[in-house]
Amino acid sequence: MIQKFFSYIIPIKIFKKKSARSKIIEVTWANGELVLDSENTNYSYGSLQRILRYGLRNIGYEKILKMNHILLLGVAGGSVVKTLVDEIEYKEKITGVEIDPDMIQVANQYFNLNQIEQLELVIDDAFEFVLKTKEQYNLIIIDVFEDTNMPNFLFEKFFLNRVCALLKDDGFILFNTMILDEAHNVRNRKYISEVNPKTFTAKMLPRIETHNELIIINKVA
């Protein structure tokens, strides 16, 4: 494909759509791969896929292969789903929660997300879903953004306690955060300090991208 070839030289935008939730959704050929972006940041594939792959590798692919249910809060184009299914060869159930139906439409059209049989997609607000779900999960991946903004509820102690309560023994939370200023650094350190040390361990991973910091929480069995 000629667009893919030329994308090694310059990014080639092939799709752009306005969305009520995400404002702008763009699909671009970049360095030989399709990526999904909002107006100001990468939403799926590209740098985001590298970041979340790094977090999954830190948890351990062998551990992930033994899990039976993974929850993804914030699906976008589904790059982390592709990492789980294609690279790690995870075979069990994945539930993906995405608030923006336009995003899912684009993910299905350009990234074939609807062809992944073990993936159940739910159009819902992450906060509302976490309150309602009766399931427990081995891994909860939190990747919720509105362009470069992260909703405040993600960092509230109530939400932290709720997602921690949804973990099975020896389960993990992988939380992708964006750091744009010192206030965000303070916010992340406060978040870590509020994790219950009797039941959970929490750590920040060294950054591999300038503005993204991963937090991993593990429920001690």
Rank of each mutant, 00 (worst) to 15 (best):
M1F: 11
I2C: 13
I9L: 15
I12C: 08
K18Q: 00
S19Q: 10
R21I: 15
R21H: 15
R21C: 14
S22K: 10
S22C: 11
I25P: 05
I25F: 11
V27P: 02
V27M: 06
W29D: 03
A30Y: 14
E33R: 06
E33M: 11
V35A: 08
S38L: 12
E39K: 14
N40Y: 13
N40C: 01
N42C: 15
S44F: 01
Y45N: 02
Y45P: 00
G46L: 05
S47D: 10
Q49T: 03
R50F: 11
I51Q: 02
G55A: 03
G55T: 00
I59D: 04
I59T: 10
G60T: 04
G60K: 06
G60I: 05
Y61R: 03
L65D: 00
L65R: 15
G74C: 01
G74I: 00
A76D: 06
G77L: 00
G78W: 01
V81A: 02
T83W: 04
L84T: 07
V85F: 03
D86Q: 09
E89I: 08
K91R: 15
K91G: 03
E92C: 03
I94V: 09
V97F: 05
D100C: 11
P101S: 13
M103D: 08
M103V: 15
A107S: 06
A107P: 03
Q109G: 00
Y110K: 02
F111W: 04
F111P: 01
L113S: 01
Q115K: 14
Q118M: 09
L119C: 01
E120D: 12
L121Q: 02
L121T: 06
I123W: 07
D125Q: 02
F127H: 14
F129C: 06
K132F: 07
T133M: 05
Y137W: 09
I141F: 03
D143W: 07
E146Q: 14
D147G: 08
T148F: 13
M150H: 06
M150L: 13
P151N: 08
P151Q: 07
N152S: 14
L154K: 00
L154A: 01
L154W: 02
E156I: 04
N161P: 04
R162N: 09
L166I: 05
K168L: 12
K168G: 09
K168A: 08
D170Q: 11
G171W: 02
N176D: 08
T177L: 00
M178N: 12
M178D: 07
I179W: 04
L180M: 13
L180E: 10
D181T: 09
E182T: 09
A183F: 14
A183W: 10
H184K: 08
V186L: 13
R187N: 15
R189F: 11
Y191I: 09
Y191L: 15
I192V: 15
I192P: 09
S193F: 10
E194I: 04
K198S: 14
F200W: 12
F200L: 07
A202F: 06
R207C: 06
E209N: 08
H211R: 14
H211T: 07
N212V: 05
L214F: 09
L214R: 01
N218T: 09
K219Q: 13
